[in-house]
Simulated scan of single mutants.
Amino acid sequence: MTRFYLAALALGSATAFAAPAAAECNRAPAAYAMPAQRLDQAVQQLAHISGCFVKMDPAMVADRRAPALKGRYRPEEALARLVRGTGYTAHSTSEGLAFDGDLLAVTMSQARALRTAVQTHARAGHLSPAQATRLRATLTQVERTVPRQVNAQGMLTPAQKRDAITKLDAVRSAVGPVEDARGWAAFKRAA
């Protein structure tokens, strides 16, 4: 009988839910018939069914619930459905799957830092009122769109992520450097 296990990674509190030791991540659609349950349990079940490792921080999901999952899905689709509505996202990696708890927080933190910079530059007269209005509108668009996409899809597509980065970087180029709010540089590298 194959044993399933929960392997702790050497990366602090990051955890990988592992599939059978000899299994390989199967990217093909598989049948899922999972009840609504704790998110950590659902992710572990997904790992067992798909054979894919799922990297995540268990502290992020300690109090979260996953909806029932019934149907045939590729592993990344199944994980995206499990995290939909939580503000978290999921994506494929070369090793399996990863659970991104900070995507929404990082994006919103960067937008807030840029909004403060726009306000500061506008008050100092470094931006015209029209420029400041355009930059604020761009930030508002990101602040409304990204949470809606993350909550609706459980992920951002690569195109949606690039779009958010492009818009926030356009504001950043207008106001100059701002603090690397909550891992913005790492977020951009992963895009």
Rank of each mutant, 00 (worst) to 15 (best):
F99R: 02
K70A: 15
G87V: 09
T89P: 04
Q149C: 02
G71L: 09
G87T: 13
V150A: 10
Q119I: 00
A68L: 10
A122F: 08
S94E: 13
Q119F: 07
T89L: 05
R136E: 12
A66I: 09
E95Q: 07
T145Q: 07
A137L: 11
A130S: 06
A78K: 05
R148T: 10
Q110I: 03
V150N: 01
A124T: 03
P67D: 14
A66C: 11
E95Y: 10
T120K: 13
D102P: 00
A66V: 11
T116V: 13
Y88I: 09
D163I: 07
E76Y: 03
A68T: 10
E76L: 02
T145C: 01
L82S: 07
L97R: 01
A66S: 11
T86N: 04
S94D: 13
L114M: 04
L79Y: 08
A130F: 03
Y88D: 08
T157H: 01
Q153G: 04
Q160T: 04
Y73D: 13
A159E: 13
P75Q: 06
T116Y: 10
P129T: 12
T166K: 10
T140A: 12
Q141Y: 12
A124M: 08
L97M: 12
K70P: 01
H126Q: 15
A80I: 02
D100S: 11
A124S: 12
L104E: 13
Q110P: 05
R72P: 05
R148N: 08
V146R: 00
L79P: 08
A132T: 00
P75A: 05
A164F: 10
A137P: 04
T89M: 09
L103C: 09
A164S: 13
R115I: 02
R112P: 00
G154T: 06
A111R: 02
A124I: 03
A78L: 08
V106P: 00
A164E: 08
R64G: 08
T86K: 05
F99T: 04
A98M: 09
L79M: 15
V61M: 15
A62I: 10
T133W: 04
Q110T: 14
A137M: 04
E143C: 00
L103Q: 11
A152V: 03
L97K: 02
R134V: 03
T93N: 05
A98H: 07
Q119N: 11
Q131G: 05
E76D: 13
R136Q: 14
K70I: 11
Q131K: 09
S109L: 02
P75L: 07
H126T: 13
M155C: 11
T93D: 03
L104V: 00
P67S: 14
G71W: 12
G85C: 06
Q153P: 04
L82I: 09
I165Y: 07
A62S: 14
R115S: 14
A62K: 14
R74C: 07
A117I: 01
H126I: 06
A111D: 02
A90E: 03
R74I: 05
A152H: 12
E95C: 01
R81F: 11
G125T: 07
T116K: 10
Q131C: 00
A113K: 00
R84Y: 05
A80V: 01
R81Y: 11
I165N: 09
P129N: 12
L97V: 05
P158V: 03
L97G: 05
A159L: 12
D169N: 14
T140L: 12
P75I: 07
R112W: 08
S92D: 15
K161S: 01
A66P: 09
A122M: 02
V118N: 02
H126R: 15
E77C: 10
A130R: 06
